[in-house]
Amino acid sequence: MAAYEKRRAAAAPAPTPAPAAGSGLAEPARAAVAADGLGNEAEFLLRAGVTAMVREALLKVLEARPEEPVSFLADYFERLVLGSPGAAGEAAAELPGPPQRLARALWYVRLAHHSHRTAFDSNAGAAYEVLGAGGRRRKAGVDGRLYSELLRRICQHGGAPAEAAAALLGRVRCRDHEAVPFDVFRYGVLTCFVLLEFAAKADALFGILDGGSGTADGRVCQAVLRALEDALGTGHFSLPSRYLEAGSKLGPDGLALAMDRALQERKLGSSMSREEFLKKATALFVAKVKPVE
């Protein structure tokens, strides 16, 4: 960091009062750039691989659309440093153990949002490779233990309610010693991300119901949960018309009707906390997840 600060100080156009300005790098560097001209700069960038690296990084940003692209880019380039041949020379001496491989796989699967399906799939593929690249001679492959650990970390990282995460893991888990094929791997990872998003949406929904007070009317919550359950419904999602049906049931009209009906039953309702609501909502989702055989 210190070296970098110094370079930047030297690159400032006016003389700076900071001690770093005395490094004397500024003049020769600028003179060189001025003499080279634009053509040479482009050539330098191309030859040094900067152009390709920047293009690749921007593509990753566009795929992932992170909330904070600067942090994303910092992490992205850091991974490149760690993965580059120079650094790999030192790192490969002791093979990356499961913790590093897990961290790296987690990073891959979090790169792109799952709605960008192609990007997500290719990142899942990369994660699968990384996770499976265990032994020096043979490819270890991904076993049930690594797979479960990765899913657990995805849920933990995304702040999913612990119970829902555990229930979901129970549904999509493989035995510890079993080899996990890629389609199961992808399915498990994808389901975890959808659960995270579902939990976030349910959380936002509760935020509307409680109006900032922390607890919401129990009857209204029950009605919303029932509407949700109804929309998730019976039967399989293979029929396209099912999506439309679910959508209409969860539309503002459908929800409003359900809540209205609930409020009209003039029973004294208890209140419901955020945790309880989240628990019930995510349980609905987890119940719909097709278990892995």
Binding site: R7, A29, F77, V81
Partner: peptide, 16 residues
């Protein structure tokens, strides 16, 4: 502007 010292420093590290 700093390409002289960057060649040994590594481009990815610079971006990081």
């Amino acid at each position: 502007e700093n390409r002289e010292d960057i060649s040994q420093y590594g481009i990815a590290r610079f971006f990081t």
